[in-house]
């Protein structure tokens, strides 16, 4: 019993470390690939990590109009995101907190982070924060159902909402996975990943135009370590989305237990999958342009339609 608990604790620490360290790296990789695609050399892959270290060392300036909310929101968002991350498998079929929650839990934890970020953006009363959060919440209201629907399809395919089990069922299916309803859900989920990570064509992460910002607009009032935490949380959220995508749609090669060879290979394969997904995101972001704001819901509606189609197909066939 005690041994199990120690093992559990160790696992939690390991997964947290993976989330904390890997998230800025993935961001760095995406940035680097984007720079390459724009014919530039670009900053080092470690740059986002350096940035976070730099921000965390700095003092924060906070508007004197802001309440305590502005101060606590980064911590809440950060913790919520990390907890969500502990529910999603990485390179091994189960997640440390897998027993405690399922897919729905992940979505709501991310929703919690989103809610507090938006609330804090309204707090200081700047117009950009207000614009950013109203846009984020409006989009969030469509992203979340699309997200749920896409995942439900997967749940339906595997017959469970527990991520660990989904992975096991999925990777057990081998080539039987290539199934039309699965392919539709794959596309639907990919659109959700793009929307949730705030990338083109939904949001533009590199913009410096206040008026077009969505996620960035909400962070405009933040500085120093609060900004660092918020950015870090956003990067971790991006990693979680990729993890979810990997567990639901690319589960091959995940380790089933802690045997050293299996785990080693699984870590390698996991890294490979992340890198490929990151580069894919960068390519999409480079080749597309940002959509008009009021057309974004249509894209997400397309994602939902795909999911519904997938579900129907599943039931009919």
């Amino acid at each position: 019993m005690l041994e199990q608990m120690i093992q559990m604790a160790g696992w939690i620490v390991l997964q947290t470390a993976i989330l904390l360290l890997l998230a800025p790296l993935v961001q760095g990789l995406i940035k680097k690939s984007k720079a390459r695609l724009q014919s530039r050399i670009g900053p080092s892959i470690l740059q986002p990590s350096y940035d976070i270290i730099k921000y965390l060392k700095k003092d924060a300036v906070i508007s004197d109009k802001a309440s305590w909310l502005t101060r606590v929101a980064p911590y809440i968002a950060f913790t919520a995101v990390i907890t969500a991350g502990l529910l999603v498998p990485t390179f091994i079929v189960n997640a440390p907190l897998g027993v405690a929650g399922d897919i729905i839990m992940v979505i709501y934890l991310l929703g919690l982070a989103r809610f507090f970020t938006a609330l804090a953006a309204l707090d200081a009363g700047s117009s950009f924060g207000g614009m950013g959060s109203s846009r984020e919440m409006a989009l969030g209201a469509i992203i979340e159902p699309a997200f749920l629907l896409a995942l439900f399809t997967v749940c339906l395919l595997s017959g469970t909402t527990k991520l660990g089990q989904i992975v096991q069922v999925m990777s057990g299916k081998e080539w039987a996975l290539i199934d039309p309803s699965y392919a539709l859900a794959f596309l639907a989920m990919f659109i959700v990943v793009i929307a949730e990570t705030g990338r083109i064509p939904v949001d533009n992460p590199d913009t410096h135009l206040e008026l077009t910002m969505i996620h960035e607009g909400m962070l405009l009032e933040y500085s120093g370590r609060y900004l660092g935490l918020m950015l870090w949380a956003a990067e971790i959220k991006q990693l979680i989305m990729l993890n979810l995508f990997i567990s639901a749609f690319l589960p091959w090669g995940m380790a089933l237990d802690w045997s050293s060879i299996g785990a080693g290979a699984a870590i390698f394969i996991y890294g490979l999958k992340l890198a490929l997904l990151g580069i894919l995101l960068a390519v999409i972001e480079t080749a597309y342009a940002k959509m008009r704001l009021y057309k974004v819901p249509k894209l997400l509606a397309a994602s939902m339609a795909l999911s519904v189609l997938a579900v129907i197909m599943r039931v009919v066939m």
């Binding site: 984007k34 695609l37 724009q38 530039r40 064509p201 533009n204 590199d206 913009t207 080749a287 342009a289």
Partner: peptide, 16 residues
Amino acid sequence: ICAGFGFAVGVSQGTI
């Protein structure tokens, strides 16, 4: 102008 809608290739090629 491409930067106005986040079309990165347009921006980079124009700058080059």
